[in-house]
Design a binder for these strands. Structure first.
Lengths: 230, 230
DNA sequence: GTAATACTGAGAACAGCGATCGCAGTATTG
DNA sequence: CAATACTGCGATCGCTGTTCTCAGTATTAC
């Protein structure tokens, strides 16, 4: 009943018999990441990656068995950018908030992470990150399963705030801007009084809450809520 | 400097001159939704939709100008499934929690909503939903811009929990299952002690927190946190 | 030392995708 | 009744991920 391996990391990078491969998963991955940083996820096509490496699309399938594999590799690779060292404060909330903040920075640096089809498969480096978070959660009295769910929630908050932060960053070329202009014209005074009121304020005039501050506040609040109440 | 309209709803459904269209945006939309409910977002291709309607792919472009338009229409259409009537409790937190819960149900009924490329453009029905939430937020002292951000946060929480709820629902055919089995084999005792410990518990054995309860708790906590502190 | 084996690289090709063009047909306008 | 502005849609373009196939090469076994 042994099934074939499902993740990239279950499959060996290369066999032992034939000629040495001219490239490596690492090279594919970094080329793909560079492409994604420049042109977003759509730029990461087999042909584009192959061109970057000076080879043909078919050759890539010697290293990975599907495009999804490549995306998994990319997601795991950038996880290494998260610095896992932190002063052992002993306060889980503080530690987790710090780690989450660093993770958010990675998302800001690689916005395509937000466009990944599904939550990416956890790879070796993601495992180290997971491990670090679980260590930070150790002083708590949370059940093991709840800890995993807490991590999921934390992750979700990170992506959530990363998304709004990115949206605000270049709100000029934002596709949401189209929605906004549509809303302004389509919201009728009598049918949508509150909406028209909310839209009437020129955005940014009113001191908009600093997103990162809000993020830290939210993370701490959620975490303390989760940790202190059983 | 007037630019051409950006959203579907800015474009007229049909002109006044020629023969009456044999189909309507409504028909396209419901056909697409049915396809998505059955086979997920990938099943919603121009060709498939066209086949459903007994026509050719090219014909669809008489009603919409891009596939994205269709997705926008779909997202807006299912918004109508959210019941906006609720006993005017006057308590913003309670009202919002109820509305968010109903929105989550819609996500559970149409899982493809979670796979939509970007946050969908708000359409007419989405506007009604927005309006309703803003009305619920009226008693608060939040600034107008903060209200919009609160809605974004609330939306994010909904998608977050909908995602985990769906994941748990059919955890058998879950792609994350592959990750799990990989994690179990790859987590080494000395390098990932906490991870191996967390994974050693058979999932579900320990009374897993009811997700919906956790959702309601989280929503209330976040909302009170946002509303009570300026 | 040679034959068998197991691998690598890559050109060609396939099915499916979103989208466009151009043309025949039709209802409305002036 | 002609001019106009629309609709339906077959053909087609360029793109995508992926597979087939086969020549070439390094390793292993005898």
């Amino acid at each position: 009943m042994a099934e074939e391996p499902k993740t990239v990391w279950d499959r060996p990078e290369r066999g032992a018999r034939g000629p040495a491969p001219e490239r490596s998963r690492r090279e594919l991955t970094s080329a793909a990441i560079r492409l994604a940083d420049e042109g977003g996820l759509p730029a990461v096509s087999m042909r584009q990656v192959a061109k970057r490496l000076g080879t043909g699309p078919a050759s890539l399938y010697r290293y990975i068995s599907t495009r999804g594999d490549l995306l998994d590799l990319m997601a795991d690779a950038v996880t290494s950018e998260i610095d896992l060292d932190l002063p052992s404060s002993g306060d889980p909330v503080e530690d987790l908030a710090t780690l989450a903040g660093r993770q958010k920075q990675v998302y800001l640096r690689h916005p395509w992470l937000l466009d990944l089809p599904t939550e990416p498969t956890v790879g070796p480096l993601g495992m180290d990150y997971l491990e670090r978070i679980l260590r930070a959660l150790e002083p708590t009295s949370l059940s093991r399963s709840t800890r995993l769910e807490t991590i999921g929630l934390l992750n979700g908050l990170v992506t959530l705030f990363a998304r709004t932060e990115l949206r605000r960053r270049h709100s000029s070329s934002d596709p949401a801007q189209a929605t906004m202009s549509y809303l302004v014209t389509a919201a009728t005074e009598e049918r949508h009084p509150f909406l028209t009121a909310a839209l009437s304020d020129s955005p940014g005039t009113e001191a908009a809450q600093d997103t990162h501050t809000l993020f830290e506040r939210m993370v701490r609040r959620v975490l303390t809520g989760l940790i202190e109440t059983p």
